[in-house]
Nucleic acid binder design. Sequence first.
RNA 1: UGGGGCGUAGCCAAGCGGUAAGGCACCGGCCUUUGGAGCCGGCAUUCGCAGGUUCGAAUCCUGCCGCCCCAGCCA
Length: 562
Amino acid sequence: MDTPNTTPAGNFVRDIIDGDLASGKHQTIITRFPPEPNGYLHIGHAKSICLNFGLALSYKGRCNLRFDDTNPIKEEQEYIDSIKNDVRWLGFSWGQTEFYASDYFEQLYEYAVHLIKAGHAYVDDLNADQIREYRGTLTEPGKNSPHRDRSIEENLDLFERMRNGEFPDGSKVLRAKIDMASPNINMRDPVMYRILHAHHHRTGDTWCLYPTYDWAHGQSDSIEGITHSICTLEFEDHRPLYNWFLDNLPVTSHPQQIEFARLELTYTVMSKRKLLLLVKDGHVAGWDDPRMPTISGLRRRGYTPEAIRTFCDRIGVAKRKDSTIEISFLEDCLREDLNKRALRVMAVLDPIKVVIDNYPEDKTEEFETVNNPEDESMGSRRVPFSREVYIERDDFQEEPHKKFFRLAPGREVRLKGAYFITCTNVVKDSAGNITELHCTYDPESKGGETPDGRKVKGTLHWVSAKHAVDAEVRLYDHLFREIDPNKAPDGQDFTSNLNPDSLRTLTHCKVEPGLADASPGNRFQFLRQGYFCVDSIDSKPGRLVFNRTVSLRDTWSKLQKQ
RNA sequence: UGGGGCGUAGCCAAGCGGUAAGGCACCGGCCUUUGGAGCCGGCAUUCGCAGGUUCGAAUCCUGCCGCCCCAGCCA
């Protein structure tokens, strides 16, 4: 496993930790990453993972992986497996500290009994609608439930019978007795337990009442001795409740909850609910569709864990809300990483045939070409050349734009690593479409340089026609066409902003022969075009499928728009 | 009209009373057998606004404005 770097920039969380260490409040730190196994992890989770595991690494502390599995209705083993796989792939390990909130159900139950005995919790018979009515509103205080003052004995009896399955779903809840008039709605006698006769993926049918997040989370943190419990901003309002529970329980550890801003990206949605909907309704091929912001989607797309970690380091950690990172920033971190490590190869996505009239009919040459100009240690390879080659249709203009310096009638360009060629003739079909180009080459320009040292402005990638291997290439664009997909027209939801062109499939692309035995997951730079990887699901020997991970920066396309 | 937060460049983000880091984007130039990469330079007289304190304020105080979150038996 590669080792994440551990020299992150400063941020307010580190300031808090530094203070706690300096004051002697803590000798070391223990953080946790607490996903609910109700979906696949996405890039937003990666931010939290990098933060929590990164902090542990940096302070030589520990980070627990804890599944927050308190809602059996939404959770599945498949999600647990994918989450573990993704965290590992990102480069982090949790050693022996793999926990489940469900491991603490018995302890939590005992804590609840403690609260009841102390007069701090009661069983309520109000139904969900009634509880909502009694809760009041943002501006009006709530009112006490008629069952709020039951005796401790009655509460104890009822609570035990709830556990024993004597009551149907929704008929009773256990509530903390705090303050129905609190300006903080979370403090208006929050529900601690609800009755759910549901099968839990780990505890099976042993429980029919399940703790809520508020009741389970802080106590789980405390049980694990978490020092800093880092969560997202929407839990700021819950912090008083988090503290209230711990203050009223016989615990020895009282973790500090710290909130930071969750990650948002332009042109994408980040809520698990919405991602689930995209999968369930078939808008994408699955959680690992290369257009998804999920870790598994990014992985299949060709992202590297290093690029994702670099991204998480660079975006920083702060409390500023409504901050949305431009997705191009993520792509840039990727390019930077891939530039250093990707093997350069030649692939023609939209081929047009070039016939070099003065090149011998049956001759084949091989040219040595460097695998990565950024890294000599990656060596070189030989690519075959012959009389007929494919070049990119885009690399020829019959009437060239003033700033276009690729091939055009009468113009000389370089075929990368091979020869200079000059276009002498354009062949068209009856509809006027260009079907073939005829060129001559300069034998003196072998390797791409001439004895007279003359320059050409353009260098094109190419593939020898008779040696070319066919491939399918999938070009991806943003899944959504709106910068903020959540801003949908009246009466429509975010799916109305789906980009109909987010996937373009190209068949019969021509790639250099060496690629024939590329393995799933292998990454390449297709010269002058972008980074591509062999699709891990659909690519098979004899039927190559590449995903475009990200295009190269394209100055030419900017010029064209001017 | 309740409570909790946040406002530093197009996007992130440092800064914590001593005169605005860094990254991305953008704009110039150099270099280049990828219009890639790389290199060099530029890019906030100003920190939401208005007052106040101070020799000195993005940093402290007061008031105002804007935005986000909260009324699940979701997390």
